[in-house]
Structure formats: C-alpha cells, structure tokens
Amino acid sequence: MKHMDHFERLGLPRDPRPCPVQLEKAYLQKSRETHPDLQRGRGNGVDREYDLHLEESAALNEAYRVLSRPWERFAYLVELYDPGVLERTKKLSPEFLMEAMEMGEAIEEARGDPKKERAIATELQEKIVKTRERIADLLKVPNQAEEAAILLHQSHYLRRALETLQRSEDRVPL
C-alpha cells in the first residue's frame, strides 16, 4: 500500500477547517474506488488484490474518521507539520496549571449546586470554543505547530474538566 497522509488519501489540501460536505463527498468518492466489494464486483466475484484493497479501505476509513473530528484533526495536523511536537509540548505551563487548579477548585466547590455548575460549564465551553478557533487559525500555516500543540494539550484538560462536570450534572450519557 502506498504511504499517504490522511489529506492525500482523501485528495484534499491540508486544511485545518475542511468543509464537512466536501470532506464527506471526497470520502464517499474514494470509497467507491477502494472498497473491496466493488473491486470484487469489477473482477466478477474475485478480488485478486483483496488484501491490498482491505488495507486501503481501512486506511481511508481511518483518514475520514480523524479528519472529520476537529480535535483529532488538529492533533494529526500538528504532528504532520512538526513530528514529535505533541510529546515535546506535553508539559503544561505553570500559568496554565495555576489556572487549571483554580478551575478544579471552583468545580469542587460548585458540586451539588446546579446553577454554579452550569455557570462553570458555560465558561469552560466558551474557553474550549475559543481555543479551538485559535488552533485552527494557527494551523493555516505549517510553522505554528508548536503553539497549536501547546493549546491542544490545554484544550484536552479543559474538555476533560467539562466532561466530569457534565457527568456529575446528569447521568444521561451524551
């Protein structure tokens, strides 16, 4: 199987905010070209290169899965631009850790008070959206991967905090 990155596989440019309709279209188009069922049909019931088509089809599904989810797409893109950057930027800055600790305390305090919990959740959500937009902007060009990676690590923390908050808020899974 030819090695291709996820964008190449879908025939799309390295865009941090691909149009979802186009992304889906490209995925379906490429599926028609690689899926073992249609390959088998073209060979009248036998797919002579079945293993290859299986592998390519699996790689295509993975490419679409990653690129259609913003956070996974960002993580993929920063590594593509700067291999190893996620590992290198793993350590959160003291400033952020401080902020995170305060946030953690606020969540602890708010526990059991739906109104307070909701207020924190809203605040977190806003922060997450802002971070997401900022990362997407940074990744328009290849040389800002490091800053994007730092924000990505922070966003991970924020999203986890939001999840725990929502989990305690109502037990219904999203």
Partner: peptide, 13 residues
Amino acid sequence: AVLAGKSQDLLLL
C-alpha cells in the same frame, strides 16, 4: 449482484 459484477451502483459501508 454487486459482488458478481452485475451492478456497480450500490455500495455498502
């Protein structure tokens, strides 16, 4: 029919 090459308009994912 798709697998036998009789029709290529359907694809199942």
